[in-house]
């Protein structure tokens, strides 16, 4: 078993332990608050994530150092995204459909999908599984704008940083050298830290889910050790999300 596979097993085990705790606490929350759907969907989403981790761990042990083809865990990963969408949908008050927001969501995730296809070559799977990300991205944008969690300046900054990361990804595939790799990693990690700090400070579920989505997308755009940096951030995002589910419940009355 190679170094990267071992790293994968260790990080997956750590995330699984954290997920078990989060799921157990969220299930208790679901039982206590039968009227709200958010904890129910959140518990299911985290269960999907946990099962996907188990699948990865089993795969790493049984077929180490090989690339996993399209497999069942991807259904779980996508169910996680869909269930988060369903949870967010229940707490989103202002569901106006602004053309610019929808276009940006389609464009931003569309570019991501193109990059996934360039990397993996699995166009059908990448397009199919990318669509829920578009919906999640739109929901998050709508929530962040309608709740005024981020100021206009911060929203522009986030959009600019996201676009910058995407535009730096493309030359990685056509140019030699690591310059764009390092630059892209530096900007991505800066946005990750910024979103993480804001999520903890502002205590908003939409912002924490944005942090989660960003870490997820960053994972998909990274390889080797870089991937695990964002995997670690992804675990932190899930830890940040749980208390905010509770907060949303309290706010709901």
């Amino acid at each position: 078993m190679g170094y990267v596979t071992r790293l994968d097993v260790i990080t997956s085990i750590i995330q699984s332990i954290i997920l078990v705790v989060i799921i157990a606490k969220t299930v208790k929350l679901t039982i206590d608050s039968k009227s709200s759907l958010l904890p129910f969907f959140f518990a299911l989403a985290m269960s999907g994530n946990l099962l996907s981790n188990f699948y990865w761990i089993a795969y790493d042990f049984l077929k180490p150092d090989t690339r996993m083809p399209m497999a069942c865990n991807e259904i779980s990963e996508n169910a996680t995204i869909l269930l988060l969408c369903a949870g967010l949908d229940t707490i989103l008050k202002d569901k106006r459909k602004v053309a610019g927001e929808i276009a940006f969501a389609i464009l931003f995730i569309g570019v991501n999908i193109v990059l996934w296809i360039v990397w993996s070559g699995e166009w059908f799977q990448d397009i199919l599984f990318g669509i829920p990300y578009m919906y999640l991205f739109w929901l998050l944008m709508r929530g962040l704008i309608s709740r005024e969690v981020l100021s206009q300046k911060e929203r522009w900054l986030a959009a600019a940083a996201g676009t910058l990361v995407m535009s730096m990804q493309t030359p990685r595939y056509v140019m030699e050298g690591d310059v764009f790799n390092y630059a892209s990693f530096a900007v991505t990690i800066a946005v990750t830290v910024w979103l993480g700090v804001l999520s903890v400070r502002r205590k908003d579920f939409f912002l924490a889910t944005t942090f989660f989505l960003w870490t997820q997308l960053s994972m998909f755009l990274s390889s080797d050790v870089y991937y695990y940096v964002f995997f670690f951030a992804n675990t932190i995002a899930m830890i940040v999300m749980f208390p905010l589910v509770k907060k949303e419940l309290a706010a709901d009355g």
Partner: peptide, 17 residues
Amino acid sequence: FVGIAGILSIPVTIHGL
């Protein structure tokens, strides 16, 4: 749909595992 997709993912992954 979303709820059903979420629920479906659990048996799919257990079966796959």
